[in-house]
Design a binder for these strands. Sequence first.
DNA 1: TTCTACTTGCAACTCAGTTGCATTAAGCTA
DNA 2: TAGCTTAATGCAACTGAGTTGCAAGTAGAA
Lengths: 139, 139
Amino acid sequence: MNPDEKKSVKSILKNANLRCTAARLAILDVLSHSDTALTQKQITDSLKDRYDKVTIYRTLDAFLRADIVHKAFYQEREWHFELADRCGRQQCHPHFACRLCGKNFCFDGISYPIIQMPANFESLQQKVLIEGVCPDCKN
Amino acid sequence: MNPDEKKSVKSILKNANLRCTAARLAILDVLSHSDTALTQKQITDSLKDRYDKVTIYRTLDAFLRADIVHKAFYQEREWHFELADRCGRQQCHPHFACRLCGKNFCFDGISYPIIQMPANFESLQQKVLIEGVCPDCKN
DNA sequence: TTCTACTTGCAACTCAGTTGCATTAAGCTA
DNA sequence: TAGCTTAATGCAACTGAGTTGCAAGTAGAA
């Protein structure tokens, strides 16, 4: 993490009333440099087992409550987490999961209309998951 | 189940090359009379524990492979299953999950445009999950 | 009615995610 | 900058949805 990144990451934590710890900085760093949503296991691996899985889960939970990350989608018995600022508040960009290899992709660039609610329903967030076959598996 | 329903359900199983057993008829019956997607536990409860949870899971798995049911969404550590004929092949109707009470709803009537894929990605199914607050919890 | 392959139930398992508790450390205050 | 308070961390043990192996039961074809 370069000094500028570190500064902005620290202010994210400060704004959320979260202490600035090595684990949190490291997890934010991993998430911000990934172009896909990550599972606890992938984060733990990226950090070379420097932190206990409980720490990862609790950190993600704190981030979830502070709206710093969100649960992008659930696949093969694991949640995939990603930075919340990758999405609008009302709706998240679509995610694509390959049924053959399990790999997943964020379709950042692709937007879709916000779905209108029936009377008395309040929408907080809308998520789209597309299941299909990725380019690598099509051959 | 009335005789007509039974007949049509039997033909569904026959077409899928699945034996027509009491458990399968019962599970199809429960799913077809529910207006929300159901978890294994809810199905087991509806059937008053007449069948083992392994039977429910294996039956749902057979139905999944035969495209008779599909996994509608994942919430609070459980998959919710619903009859596949409730949706189009390419996309499923949106599901709504209440963040407060956990109750969920199928928005059968609401459609949304099919999301176009980037080059070389093949879409098999598109699912939308809306998280929010349901009418009962708004008061 | 017989036979065989598919289905079911039971017991034991797997493993992502959670909880309790003792220890450590962030960061505020004087 | 030392001391203090409280939040964060690590470890061990747990939870429970979903899975697996295997023996026993049964659908349905012959």
